[in-house]
């Protein structure tokens, strides 16, 4: 479970070799939109060469491949990365149909990478539930820029135009215990706007937010880390459970049972991982 997914272009050595200094929980090395069509092979070769030499324990690495409708690109991407030590792939323009093709390809090639699907078409928003349910899917990532183009509307800070998509993704993901990852905020220098956008997504129930600039990671972590209050509450629950040696007790008048205690423990584990425990 990550709070931040940072996109890094796959064909820019300066960014690639610094991917571990930006403090993101997860990195998505991009072969798709940020790589020009005549640079695709360069991105594959650079990423291959880099990840064969350097390994990252603390960091979850993903690669955004080209979408499966571009068969040649997609298959060349997969051939280039299937032996790499990465956590999974990010699949653009996901739909049920696309997922079926990928599924068949993965079966044939014996590939087991988990998939984060980018929901960026109206059809995908409608299919979100079934996509989320798919066994290979680890999470859903909203791609609001492409989606609003298809909707014939424009992106605003208010984000009314993507409210339905956001909620649909959160419901679909949560229904199947998958990750719900919010769309990147594309105005790189607008830190105030980023804060508003991130806070809104966190409130809607997203577990993480993607970003296209390293300088956004700190703000994203601020809104997607367990809050001080939540940590304090979780600590009390765990402590009380230990003290009473019980998995079922009352605290401040509300009932605490095993799922609550497990959730509290999971929250503390995450808080520790993110360095926000104290």
């Amino acid at each position: 479970m990550s709070r931040s997914y940072l996109f890094i272009p796959g064909d820019v050595p300066r960014m690639l070799q610094n991917l571990d200094v930006f403090d993101a929980d997860s990195i998505i090395i991009d072969f798709e939109d940020s790589v020009a069509i005549d640079q695709k092979d360069e991105a594959r070769l650079l990423t291959q060469a880099f990840l064969s030499k350097h390994h990252f324990k603390e960091l979850d690495l993903y690669i955004r491949v080209n979408d499966v409708s571009q068969k040649t690109l997609f298959e060349a991407d997969m051939q280039a990365i299937k032996a790499l030590n990465i956590h999974g792939i990010v699949l653009p323009k996901v739909t049920l149909e696309a997922l079926d093709s990928v599924d068949a390809f993965f079966d044939r090639e014996n590939i087991t990478f988990p998939i984060i699907g980018i929901i960026e078409t109206p059809l995908a928003v409608l299919e979100a539930q079934t996509i989320a349910k798919h066994k290979r899917i680890q999470g859903l990532l909203l791609g609001a820029e492409d989606l609003t183009k298809d909707l014939g509307t424009t992106r605003t800070l208010d984000a009314e135009e993507i409210l339905f998509a956001r909620s649909q993704i959160v419901f679909a993901a949560k229904a199947y215990q998958k990750e719900a990852i919010d769309t990147p905020y594309v105005f790189v220098r607008d830190e105030a706007g980023l804060a508003v956008d991130a806070q809104r997504a966190a409130r809607l129930g997203f577990t993480a937010k993607a970003s296209i600039h390293p300088n956004h990671v700190e703000t994203i972590h601020h809104y997607f880390s367990p809050s001080k209050e939540a940590i304090h509450e979780a600590k009390r629950i765990v402590a009380q459970s230990k003290k009473l040696n019980s998995m079922r007790f009352s605290l401040d008048g509300s009932m605490v049972d095993k799922p609550v205690i497990d959730r509290a423990k999971a929250l503390l584990k995450r808080a520790e991982k993110y360095g926000v425990l104290s």
């Binding site: 610094n18 200094v21 930006f22 403090d23 220098r189 600039h213 390293p214 300088n215 700190e218």
Partner: peptide, 11 residues
């Protein structure tokens, strides 16, 4: 600086 490496150093 807005360079991400510079930003990290400053942080």
């Amino acid at each position: 600086t807005n360079d991400p490496v510079g930003v990290k150093i400053a942080r």
